[in-house]
Simulated scan of single mutants.
Amino acid sequence: MRSYDDLITEASAADVTGWDFAWLEGRATEERTPWGYAQQLAARLPTASAALDLDTGGGEIIAGVPALPPRTVLTEAWGPNVERLRTRRHAGTGASDAVPTVVPQVVQAATDQLPFADATFDLVTSRHPITPHWHEIARVLTDDGTYFAQHVGPRSAFELIEYFLGPLPHARTARDPQHESAAAHTAGLTVTDLRTARCRMEFHDIGAVVWTLRRCVWWVPDFTVARYEPQLRDLDAQLRAGQPFAAHSTRTLIEARRRPRRSH
C-alpha cells in the first residue's frame, strides 16, 4: 500500500462532482439493494408523459436510461453538478451515449420551491434526495401521478460518521421511513410500496475514506484532513493491518400515488 501522504494527496485532489463513485473501485465496496432502483426507473420512465427527476446529481442514473418521456426535466441545486449535467446533455444520454431522441431540460433549483406549475408531471423520481419536500412533490404531480424514489435511510454510514464526530443520538432518528410515509400522506400522497435495506460497506485504504467524506459533505460537515488527522492516522494504521473499516448504508424504496385533488 502506498504511503499515508500519497493516498491523502491523491484523494484530496480527485474530482468529487456528480454522483459517480467509480473512483472507489478496488478501494471500497458497498452491497447493492435487492430491488434494483436503476432498472425499475428505466422501465417506468418511457411510460410517462412528463417526468421530473429531483436532486439528480450529475445525471449518472438518467444517463443509463435508454428511453425518456417526451418531456424530461432534471433539477439540481449545486452549481458544479448543474454544469456537469449540461455538458452531459449536449454529449448525449442513454446507455450507448448516442444523442437521445429526448434531450432532458436541466433546471438549477432547490426542491423546496420547484419552479413548475401545479400538476405538471405524471412521474416524479429521485435517487437519494437531500430532503423530500412532500408538499412540493404532491403539488407538481398530476392526479394519480406517481412518486418513485430511493431514499437514504436512517443511521446510514453512521459507523463512519460517528468515528469522526462521536455519538449522535438525535441524528439517528432522522430519515425514518415510517415518518416519511406519514409526511407523504399528509401532503396528499398514498404510499403504495415501502421497502428498506441495510447494505454493508467496506473501506480498504485511507484515500477512499477521505474521498468519500469530501463527496458526502453532509456526513462530517466540518471535515478537513488537518482537523481530523489523528483519527485518519489511527484508521490508516487499522487498514494497513488488513482490517477494513465496515459501515452500513441504509436505503428506502418508496412509491406513492397522488390522491385526486378536491374539485371546488
Rank of each mutant, 00 (worst) to 15 (best):
Y4V: 12
D5C: 02
D6P: 00
D6T: 09
A13R: 15
A13I: 05
G18L: 08
D20I: 10
F21G: 04
F21H: 14
W23V: 07
W23C: 01
E25M: 04
G26M: 11
G26K: 12
R27L: 06
E30P: 00
E31G: 14
W35Y: 12
Y37L: 15
A42I: 06
A42C: 01
A43D: 08
T47S: 12
A50L: 07
L52P: 02
L54Y: 13
L54G: 06
G57T: 08
V65F: 13
L68Q: 08
P70A: 11
P70R: 08
T72F: 10
T72M: 15
V73G: 07
L74Y: 04
A77C: 03
A77P: 05
W78K: 04
W78G: 03
N81A: 06
R86N: 14
R89F: 12
R89G: 00
A91P: 01
T93Q: 12
D97K: 03
A98E: 15
V99F: 10
P100D: 14
T101N: 13
P104Q: 09
T111Y: 01
A117N: 06
D118T: 15
L123A: 11
T131W: 13
H133P: 00
E136Y: 01
A138K: 04
A138I: 06
R139G: 11
R139F: 13
T142V: 14
Y147R: 00
Q150F: 01
R155F: 04
F164A: 02
F164W: 05
P167R: 06
A171C: 07
R172F: 09
T173P: 02
Q178P: 00
H179T: 15
H179C: 02
A187E: 06
A187N: 04
L189R: 07
V191T: 14
D193Q: 15
R195Q: 15
A197L: 04
A197D: 13
C199Y: 02
M201N: 03
E202Y: 04
I206A: 03
V210D: 02
W211P: 05
W211Q: 02
T212Q: 03
L213M: 09
L213Y: 01
R215S: 04
R215E: 07
V217W: 13
V220F: 07
F223E: 06
T224S: 12
A226Y: 03
R227T: 14
E229C: 00
Q231R: 12
D236P: 04
D236M: 01
A237D: 13
F245A: 08
A246M: 11
A247T: 14
L253K: 02
L253F: 13
R258L: 02
R259N: 15
S263Q: 14
S263K: 07
